[in-house]
């Protein structure tokens, strides 16, 4: 495809207008887009919109009692954020296990979510943080935004509910309640530079040994990053003991639907799912 126009807007409004009609490719860090276009998995549209100059899409802060992260915020920004280290360490942990230093420096948070990989490492902690994404488009006169729960955002490998002309401007999630615990695990043996064979996040509250408000998210075991609702239900309100953990292991094993690929077999992904849910629950118990 010949590129007919290239634009580097510096506001969301300008970008949204450029994206109107949908025949445009959004360019940010390039860490997913470049290999996809080079290999032919994806083609450039006639219009390129480089959103890297939109400063209002960067930054990490608190807004209306919620944590708000601009879509262009890099994984490194997340890793280095004092606010997130205090408020959402699970997201920082996941950032630490994300690719390599160079890729963390370039990758935007929104880019990782928009790529909608079943193994996307930032999807998992954000799912357990009950995040929403903000999608903006131009309605002809002004910016129109909608918020979509991340849980409902992904629809398939590389697919989401975003429609042509939309831009993911921010990610938000509630500030943590007391006794909130969250943790993230990712398969190795490399610390970070791996496409996860399995990744898993878990958040919950633990009061007097009873686990509640449970959220479990699992990467690379289903066509989308998975919110493991049945596993959550199996845990909700239970005393966190070995019987509960065993039930969670069994439920999670039944809930995932992994595939065989070059990285691992379905058997191993199921096996790791059991190992990780047990580890995360043991971690919760110990904390």
């Amino acid at each position: 495809m010949n590129i007919e126009s290239y634009n580097a807007p510096d506001s969301i409004a300008e970008a949204a207008q450029l994206l109107q009609g949908g025949n445009a490719t959004v360019v940010a860090g390039g860490t997913d887009l470049t290999p996809q276009t080079e290999s032919g998995v994806r083609q450039f549209a006639a219009t390129l919109v480089n959103i890297q100059r939109i400063d209002e899409m960067r930054g990490i802060g608190v807004m209306n009692g919620r944590i708000r992260i601009g879509g262009l915020t890099t994984v490194t920004d997340i890793l280095e954020s004092k606010l997130l280290a205090d408020e959402a360490p699970v997201l920082v942990d996941a950032a630490d296990r994300f690719a390599s230093s160079q890729i963390r420096n370039a990758s935007s948070l929104a880019g990782n979510l928009c790529n909608a990989s079943p193994a996307g490492d930032m999807c998992i902690p954000l799912l357990v943080l009950d995040a929403e994404v903000e999608l903006a488009c131009w309605d002809g006169e002004s910016i129109s935004t909608r918020k979509v729960s991340l849980e409902r955002f992904f629809t398939g490998p590389g697919k989401s509910v975003m429609v042509a002309g939309e831009l993911m401007t921010a990610i938000e999630f509630p500030r943590c309640a007391n006794r909130f615990v969250a943790a993230f695990l990712k398969s190795g043996p490399r610390p970070a530079l791996e496409i996860s064979t399995v990744s898993m996040g878990l958040s919950c509250s633990l009061t007097d040994g009873v686990i509640s408000n449970v959220r479990v998210a699992i990467g690379a075991v289903a066509p989308t990053p998975l919110r493991a609702k049945r596993t959550e239900a199996a845990l909700e309100g239970k005393v966190l003991n070995e019987a509960t953990i065993q039930l969670a292991v069994e439920t999670a094993g039944e809930e995932v639907s992994p595939i065989d690929d070059v990285r691992a077999s379905a058997w191993y992904r199921k096996h790791l799912t059991g190992v990780y849910i047990r580890r995360l629950l043991n971690h919760v118990n110990g904390s």
């Binding site: 360019v27 860090g29 390039g30 860490t31 470049t34 230093s101 160079q102 890729i103 420096n105 370039a106």
Partner: peptide, 8 residues
């Protein structure tokens, strides 16, 4: 630092 092969 970035990977120059990925950045436009």
């Amino acid at each position: 630092t970035i990977n120059a092969c990925l950045m436009f």
